[in-house]
Amino acid sequence: MSEEGRFTIHLEQREGFLINVAFDWKRAPDLLMDEPPPLGEQQGPNASRLLAAAAANCLSASLLYCVFKEEPPENCLRAEATCIMVRNEKKRQRIGALEIRLILADVVTQSPRFARCKTLFEDFCVVSASIRQGIPMRVTLLDGQGVILHESE
């Protein structure tokens, strides 16, 4: 699970605001990014959407690793990432906050490790811990029925 050191991702503009992202992993497919109109045509996610997805993915992986180690069961977690856009004092659009909701199946919440992991996993998520240094983020764990199991500040 460790990714120490450096990595390089290559981006190349195709046309307009359409950017191809080539990852440093040979088995990872390229990703097309684009901007919403009027700049782009929404042919792919923009950077704000990828940041929200990255935070939700990292938190999901951290929780699953803490609870199950290398073998999490299939389809035991869903996530929702909400990005709240604001304007700063210069009227420039910024990410004002992120809200991440992890919806957990019973197999997660009934695991003997869940009680400890629900208060521990966020500290091991590289992405969300880094984002939190500049962007407020609230993380909520819910069961399949929508009951809040844990909420960070």
Rank of each mutant, 00 (worst) to 15 (best):
P36C: 05
N75K: 12
A54I: 11
P112W: 04
I135F: 02
A61R: 15
R49I: 04
S111K: 08
T109E: 10
E151D: 04
L102H: 08
R78Y: 14
P112M: 04
I131V: 04
P38S: 11
M33E: 15
R92G: 00
I9E: 02
Y65A: 10
E153R: 09
G144F: 06
I148E: 15
P112C: 04
P73R: 03
V86S: 09
S60A: 15
F114E: 13
P38D: 01
R49H: 08
N88W: 07
G5V: 01
V139I: 14
R78S: 15
T109K: 12
Y65T: 07
D24M: 04
A97Y: 09
P136G: 08
R113D: 07
L39V: 09
E4C: 07
E35W: 08
M1F: 06
L64F: 06
A115M: 08
V108F: 05
F17L: 06
F68D: 00
E74Y: 07
G5Q: 01
A54K: 12
T82I: 08
E89H: 07
S62N: 04
I103W: 12
T8I: 07
R116G: 07
D106Q: 13
C83H: 06
G134Q: 02
A22Q: 14
V127L: 11
M137T: 14
R116P: 02
P37N: 12
H10V: 05
A105Y: 09
R87T: 03
F23K: 01
S152C: 04
V107Q: 14
G40E: 00
I9V: 09
R92K: 00
Q13W: 14
P73S: 02
D123C: 03
K90N: 10
